[in-house]
Design a protein around this nucleic acid. Structure first.
Ligand SMILES: [Mn+2]
Ligand SMILES: [Mn+2]
Ligand SMILES: [Mn+2]
Ligand SMILES: [Mn+2]
Lengths: 227, 227
DNA sequence: ATAAATTTTTAGATTGGCCTAAATTTATTT
DNA sequence: AAATAAATTTAGGCCAATCTAAAAATTTAT
């Protein structure tokens, strides 16, 4: 059955602030400062000050003047709801409409604000309940719970441990093209064979026991889940 | 290949006004008056006066004070583009996400404002280039051309002419439930056998030579295309 | 043709979301 | 512990989209 969702009214702008604050606080852990929010949203610190006053009145964040912002339970729930919608739409665009993973973000930024929880549960069903979006980021469930193992950057993976590629930090076209070229894609199995002291580059073994060498810079942008 | 679409910037509100004006003018034919727009959009005439000034400055409508509004070529094109998006999304919701036709309008009202012509051409392809939306309304093509035969109300169909049910005027749940009950749905073949003078009711023959009688009120709400 | 009713526009206010410039608070140097 | 720098808030303003109340134009009725 479908769940009633007595959501607080938030504008597009407010939802975007909340999402930015959620991400900047690494999921509600650290405090977030005004300038960081302004930079992330391409606005001015003065606008942020205005908005965080409003958001704290609505109970989705708390803040002490000059001390920074913390997201509340309610706010985190809402941020995760928006993130869920964003990522499900991204899956739809890639899986059903044949978009490439580097083309979907802007459209998902719009679609994430469509209001209808029934729509999203139907979309989730249609997509067969995906756990990750096309960039490897986990999709929160209806309760806003992310039930996937933590992702780590490949350069921090212990030598010899098998892992699966789930996400990239750099999602620019240049990097993604390079990955395409070396045949590296989401879901690839990766084991680190050796680490080269000199430049931090890695020797890795991938899917069909293919061995290749990647630079530290590349390894720093690949997110894996240890198996 | 994908077509460049150098669209004028319009807000959600402006797009909704334009769509209302298009519909109220029956596709750009008659002039539209301020009060009608206000009523349709649940706003006040004063707000409409403001907005039509702005829209005429943007070149999507023309108007003379106190005389009413006419939509321009540019405005009609844009209205049809929004209508195209609305109806394609409605098809998606019904065909792919298993919504019922009477549940999709509100969601499509939101989705119709998503900006991306690539998204819409991909969606169109995914849906196999549908010609009608779930309510039987025709879907304009990328150029804004509606290439389907005119729809007429069943009570105006000549006796003996075969037709196909393509749309309902009343899309309320009560009426749609009634149609479900008498087994009448989009695509049904209908021929008028006889018209009863007394109350305007019709004897009609439907798909498998089933004969039934419907009131004038029902016939006035069924839109058909003569074959 | 005047009066009355209706429609439409203008005037003035409000709210949301943004801005710049200036003031204030906190953090970092010296 | 001052002085300086950086971050943050406040003050004041702008634009979009709405509203109510009042004025003006048009239409309809007498
Ligand atoms: Mn994204
Ligand atoms: Mn993503
Ligand atoms: Mn609709
Ligand atoms: Mn429709």
């Amino acid at each position: 059955m479908h769940k009633m969702n007595p959501m607080i009214e938030l504008s597009f702008a407010e939802e975007n602030y909340l999402k930015a604050i959620y991400h900047l606080s690494s999921g509600g852990q650290n405090m977030v400062n005004t300038n960081a929010i302004a930079e992330r949203l391409n606005t001015k610190p003065a606008s942020v000050s205005d908005m965080i006053r409003k958001l704290s009145e609505k109970g989705v964040i708390t803040y002490l003047k000059y001390q920074g912002v913390n997201i509340t339970e309610l706010g985190e729930k809402r941020a995760l709801w928006v993130i869920r919608k964003h990522r499900l739409w991204e899956v739809f665009l890639v899986e059903k409409l044949n978009f490439h993973w580097d083309e979907v973000h802007e459209i998902a930024e719009q679609l994430e604000h469509i209001h209808s929880s029934l729509l999203i549960s139907r979309l989730d069903e249609f997509l067969k309940y995906p756990k990750f979006d096309p960039h490897g980021d986990p999709i929160p469930n209806e309760e806003g719970i992310i039930s996937s193992k933590p992702r780590i950057i490949l350069s921090e993976l212990k030598k010899g441990t098998a892992s699966e590629l789930v996400s990239m930090k750099d999602t620019g076209a240049v990097f993604l093209n390079y990955l395409d070229r070396i045949g590296m894609k989401i879901g690839a199995k990766i084991t680190v064979i050796d680490t080269i002291e000199f430049d931090g580059s890695l020797e890795i073994k991938t899917d069909e026991d293919r061995v290749l060498s990647i630079s530290k810079q590349v390894a720093d942008n690949l997110l894996v889940i240890a198996k």
